[in-house]
Design a protein around this nucleic acid. Structure first.
Lengths: 248, 248
DNA sequence: TAACCATCTTGATCTGTATCAATGCCGCTC
DNA sequence: GAGCGGCATTGATACAGATCAAGATGGTTA
């Protein structure tokens, strides 16, 4: 799995990714230290629903390891993934009492949580935290809007390439690797999860993955281990002009 | 046009919509009063680009009258609207120096603006403002994610119904009207703009509008003036289960 | 080693939406 | 009131991706 570094991120924040810091007791000012006593960890197994849309959501937190996803479902069962939570991503709705979407563990997941009420109280007293949360939310909004272009206007092949480049870039920057040249990573999603994220069927995903492989854009080892010989080719396939886009 | 109330909203904030208050000098605490001297108005003609993606964005503000849209464009010209700015909506990227998308005036638009640097400075000193901005941004994020379901999984007919119900509900609440029963409003978008928002072609939009008319879901007077005899039927067509969704 | 199950691949066919192409409508100008 | 230009409608056809349907693969259990 991607970044299976268990609890170390949360406990030693010298390597703590920026988004995680907002809710991690060891990273911040003295103010934040006080949150130590309301911090706790939660584990979820792959497939488990962390929280259902509409349910009371009394915590905020961030993903320590594993992958979770935000999904919306229609009455007839059609589902759309609206966000991917990779390690260090924040989840929570300060100022809101219920979840707006289902949060589902896509792999086994460990989350670092804080009870929401004390967190919000601290947020009000510490402008610093509110500011950071605003920045994070703006970033997510940008990412969501970028994804709207993918969903609304890109072809199936471009959609797949877009997803792969997001995961590759995200993985690469967590590993402090370079973005140019070859990149190797594990894609921790089933074909069905990919389809839900991209607004496609799993058969179309499978076909397009095969096509990208045949065309030499990617190499597959097993179902999930992917090598991109040349990231610029993948970005080209994704139809990204300037690149530089953010991601959930 | 929708809510053609010119400058009165900004100058007398007793009726000032909640989102506008965040940047309106007369609505807030003494702190905000100080911003008075950096407040100004800008007018844009229909079709005019307020700001290009990637350009320096040195103001924040909100729409006083008219409609603007946030759009993303691919190299080959495919475009996707990623947000609709209706009167009272906020635009700006605190903490960021460049625009992330094109902002285009869809009708004639008046915006109430503040220079960004002083606004940000004030935001840091006044947690209240940062909090409000965070809430607004979280709402927009919810709306964007709701729209991802529309783009990724809904049929053309459902997409049209979703757009109409958003504009109808938004218009109705601004006018303090009830949501049940019949609703009448002007849809201030060309068929092409609708298509850009929905990830469709303008021909498909036109066909589905005709179909909804034939089926009695809507009544058209001219091209733009729309009556919905029964909102619940429209919401049904949109595939919304619980409704209650927010909107940009 | 075999049987099993979840996941993935591939093929054949269908269908919703795009594409290409006329035609219609309406306000504006001269 | 004729002509023009921007928008909208409608029709005919093409095609990308969905749907339906077999298999294939690979890991796990017995």
């Amino acid at each position: 799995m991607l970044n299976q570094n268990s609890l170390s991120v949360a406990q030693d924040c010298s390597e703590c990714p920026i988004r995680h810091r907002a809710v991690c007791a060891r990273c911040e000012t003295d103010e934040l230290e006080r949150l130590e006593d309301i911090k706790y960890y939660r584990r979820f197994e792959a497939g488990q629903t962390v929280i259902w849309s509409g349910d009371k959501m009394d915590f905020v937190g961030s993903v320590v390891s594993g992958i979770a996803s935000l999904t919306q479902t229609m009455e007839d069962g059609r589902t759309q993934m609206v966000g991917l939570l990779l390690p260090s991503d924040f989840v929570g709705r300060p100022g809101r009492n219920t979840a707006a979407y289902d949060v589902v563990a896509t792999t086994d997941v460990v989350m670092c949580c804080f009870r929401k009420a004390p967190f919000e109280e601290l947020m009000e007293k510490t402008p610093h935290i509110a500011q950071r949360l605003l920045q994070m939310t703006l970033d997510e909004l940008d990412a969501a809007r970028e994804w709207m272009l993918v969903l609304g206007r890109k072809t199936a092949r471009e959609k797949i390439a877009s997803l792969l480049s997001i995961v590759a870039r995200r993985d690469a920057s967590l590993n402090m690797a370079r973005l140019s040249g070859a990149v190797t990573f594990d894609l921790p999603l089933t074909r069905e999860a990919m389809a839900d994220y991209l607004g496609l069927t799993l058969e179309t995903v499978s076909r397009q993955m095969s096509a990208l492989r045949k065309d030499g854009v990617i190499t597959l080892e097993g179902k999930r281990h992917i090598t991109v010989p040349d990231m610029s080719v993948l970005l080209e396939e994704a139809g990204d002009d300037t690149d530089g886009g953010l991601l959930v």
